[in-house]
Amino acid sequence: MPRPADPTAADGRLPRFSRAERWVHRCTAALMLTCLATAACLYLPQLAELVGRRRLVVVVHEWAGLALPVPLLLGLGSRALRRDLGRLNRFQSYDRQWLRAVLRRADFRPAGKFNAGQKLYAGWIAGAAVVMLGTGLLMWFTHLAPLTWRTGATFVHDWLALAVGVVVLGHLYMAFNDPEARRSMRTGRADPLWATREHPHWDPAEDEDGDGDRDTVR
């Protein structure tokens, strides 16, 4: 088996996110923030008084919500993105260790390319997006379902929206506190020292070598 080329580029940084992955993240982020901002204008009395224009805000909210899964679905054409979805899905023994360390406020938090918190966030927000889309469609196309469904859909949509808002703010807060993580999502490349510290079980070479035929422990 030919050994894959050293993935480290000339600038000494490690390839972390492909162009496709970064664009999927960017577009999804823009759509999610649009959904949250318009939702706030529809729901918070102070913002509703300031902004008004209810019909326009509703239309923007509906279409941003409908478009929310589109970048990810298009991105499924990318092999790198599919691989990372697989990584987000699968929990290894070090992920349990990471969660235990967080609960005990311990410092040693081993992680693969994504830490257990990022994996839980991805699974939760994906499920929440599906629920928001489903309940949103029931509220939008009122003839789709009987009224009790619509009442239930409105209830779930309202409260889950609040939860999504809090969780996305948490995601932004984590990013705010980790400039290197932001930089790697912006440029696609990560500092090797940061990678060793935050993601010791991540092997960037695994991406280059299509079979994943390498030990994942560095």
Binding site: L120, G123, W124, V130, V131, G134, F155, V156
Partner: peptide, 21 residues
Amino acid sequence: VGRRVMLGVIGLGAAGVAAGP
């Protein structure tokens, strides 16, 4: 685990719609 969390949230969402009123 990721898939389970996602399906769990979807299941809770559906239950919430049913129990919503």
